[in-house]
Nucleic acid binder design. Structure first.
Length: 256
DNA sequence: ATGTCAAAATCCTTTTGA
C-alpha cells in the first residue's frame, strides 16, 4: 500500500500537475493539503475519472484538506479538530482505508511569531496531540500525514541559524513535534534516511529550488504496528521542477 | 526588506496568507 501526501497550494491551480503525478506514480492513498477551494469547487469528477474516490473538507480562500483512495473501501472517520468550537479552519480530515486509519492534517503556519497566529499554531498542536493520544489507545494501525509546518531538527533546514525565530522552527514548535513523537509515533522518512538531507518544500522566492534551499516539513508519523510494516519511502522532488508546480513536493511511503 | 504564487475583494489592481 503506497500512501502519499502533497500540499498542492490550490487544487484547481494544480490540477494538471496533480493528474500527471497520479498517473506517473499511482499512489493507493493520497492526502492533500491547501486545497484553497470551497467545498463545492473541489474537482471530484476529474479525480474520479483518474481513478480516485475522494473525501474532502474545503474552505473558501485558504486551507482545505482531502483524502483520495484508489480503493472504494474508504470510510470517513471525521473532519475538523475537536477542542475549540471557535476554530472553523479546515485543517484535518481522517478516514479508514483497507484497515488503516489515515489522518490528513495541515498544521497552522504560525507566522509571525510571537503573536496570535503563533498561539493558534501551538494550541492547535496541543489539541492534535490530545486526539492522537486517543488514536494510539485504539490499537488500529494509524498514519498521521500532511504539512506539519515544523522542521524537527537542524538536519531538516538548509540554514538553521536563519530560521530560529520563524514559527516553523522556533523551540516551541520543535518541542511540540517531539512530544508528539514521544507518544509513540515514528517519523517514517527520518527512520528510512537517518542522516540524509531530505527536503519537501522549497520557497518560490529567490530560486530556492535550484539552490536546494529547502525545508522538511511534510511528515509521515506511524503508529508502532504500522512502523513494523514500513517498506520504503521518498520525496518526488522532480515534481517540484515541473511547470506550475506547488512550492511543496509530494512525499510517499509504502507499507506491507 | 526582499522575492513568488494564488484567491478574493478593493474587482484588471490591491490585499492577504503562505
Amino acid at each position: 500500500m503506497k500512501i502519499a501526501t502533497y500540499n498542492v497550494n490550490s487544487i484547481n491551480a494544480r490540477l494538471p500537475v496533480v493528474l500527471r503525478w497520479l498517473e506517473e506514480t499511482k499512489p493507493d492513498v493520497v492526502c492533500l493539503q491547501e486545497l484553497k477551494a470551497p467545498q463545492e469547487k473541489f474537482p471530484e469528477q476529474v479525480l474520479r475519472s483518474a481513478g480516485y474516490h475522494a473525501i474532502w473538507h474545503g474552505q473558501k480562500s485558504y486551507n482545505g484538506v482531502a483524502i483520495l483512495s484508489r480503493s472504494e473501501d474508504i470510510q470517513e472517520m471525521g473532519r475538523g479538530l475537536a477542542g475549540d468550537p471557535e476554530d472553523v479552519q479546515s485543517r484535518l480530515i481522517e478516514a479508514q482505508i483497507n484497515g488503516v486509519h489515515v489522518v490528513c492534517l495541515y498544521l497552522p503556519n504560525g507566522n509571525p511569531a510571537p503573536g496570535p497566529k503563533f498561539d493558534y499554531k501551538l494550541s492547535w498542536f496541543e489539541r492534535f496531540k490530545q486526539h492522537t493520544a486517543q488514536l494510539l489507545t485504539k490499537g488500529t494501525p494509524v498514519v498521521l500525514t500532511g504539512d506539519y509546518n515544523v522542521m524537527p531538527t537542524d538536519l531538516d533546514v538548509y540554514k538553521p541559524e536563519r530560521w530560529v525565530n520563524d514559527a516553523l522552527f522556533r523551540p516551541e514548535s520543535r518541542e511540540a513535534f517531539h512530544t508528539l513523537l514521544a507518544q509513540g509515533w515514528t517519523d517514517a522518512i527520518r527512520k528510512l534516511y537517518p542522516t540524509e538531507t531530505i527536503y519537501t518544500y522549497w520557497d518560490y522566492f529567490r530560486d530556492a529550488f535550484s539552490r536546494n534551499a529547502g525545508l522538511r516539513i511534510d511528515h509521515f508519523l506511524l503508529s508502532p504496528d504500522l512502523d513494523k510494516r514500513l517498506l520504503a519511502g521518498g520525496v518526488d522532488r522532480n515534481v517540484r521542477g515541473w511547470e506550475k508546480s506547488s512550492d511543496h513536493a509530494p512525499v510517499w511511503i509504502e507499507i506491507s
